[in-house]
Design a protein around this nucleic acid. Sequence first.
DNA 1: TATTGTTATACTCTATAACTATA
DNA 2: TATAGTTATAGAGTATAACAATA
Lengths: 165, 165
Amino acid sequence: MIYQEVYYGCMTTAPQPHHRIAFLLSQLGSDAASGFERALQALDITASDAGLLRLIGRDPGVSQRALSAQVGVGPSRIVAVLDRLEGRGLIERRRSRADRRIHEVVLTEEGERVLGNIRPLAEAHESAFTECLDVEEVELLQNLLARIADFRGLSLDVHAGTSTS
Amino acid sequence: MIYQEVYYGCMTTAPQPHHRIAFLLSQLGSDAASGFERALQALDITASDAGLLRLIGRDPGVSQRALSAQVGVGPSRIVAVLDRLEGRGLIERRRSRADRRIHEVVLTEEGERVLGNIRPLAEAHESAFTECLDVEEVELLQNLLARIADFRGLSLDVHAGTSTS
DNA sequence: TATTGTTATACTCTATAACTATA
DNA sequence: TATAGTTATAGAGTATAACAATA
């Protein structure tokens, strides 16, 4: 939560009472992110960890450099994060034989198990946001949000969800 | 941006392709918050600063303790933040004569001026999110988002926007 | 005794620059 | 020379505990 919390600090003084989509989005987005973090505490991992595990599960043997770029964590930071995940037995680092500079990162069996437990938590978390809407409203809302995201030039990575199932 | 960025790190691996409101919200919320930060750079303040200035403008003479509670920044952190704002000549601290433990925080003239410049930036920022929708869609979206926020138990502080105008 | 503002400390995340070993 | 991983360092934000002045 980088962005979310700062704007959130401004929450109690919304700029406009009638027309404040951006404000509502930042507030709800912050809530969604922190709620997801809270849900993942059941697995004793962070949302950032979950993203890493998904990427590694999708692309076994991926390099730390590639992970760093995809998850946006910085090449030096990724070292400590992977150290921790390796210490917990969720991932392993193997020297590539093609290019001995590279560490190929793979999931352990335990890592696969934890990864498999993320999806149901994510689905429950999703439900916690859409429970108060009916099916048509959810679809409508998703359509509106997707249009804004597209308008804002955000990459939605629509294919990501299917690759870890 | 606390929550936002962490969840955002998971962005490339959205849990569900078809039904992922929470994910979209966190993504758009992060974008909204960082965009607001960027807009405020024109005034050389952060979103957190903007929230503080609004609160002080609304309640001149407010104590640091009250500010800390309202903005969620922590009593010790607020000291450094106010030091910086005071160093820039945007606010002043005055010893309360009723209770000499209290610092009454007020805006300077320059602080009032900067505060007055926040609203147009916030409105422009708002437009950057709603430009791609027509009026009915904006109203519909706001209604859906407000219902989720209410369902999630988030305090919207509907009256805040009118008090600084 | 409790509270306000303050200082100090530790912990996390971020960003940057250097270092090593490989290529 | 360039790159992958690593280490070290400094900065910002958060949280906590302690302290002096005041109530």
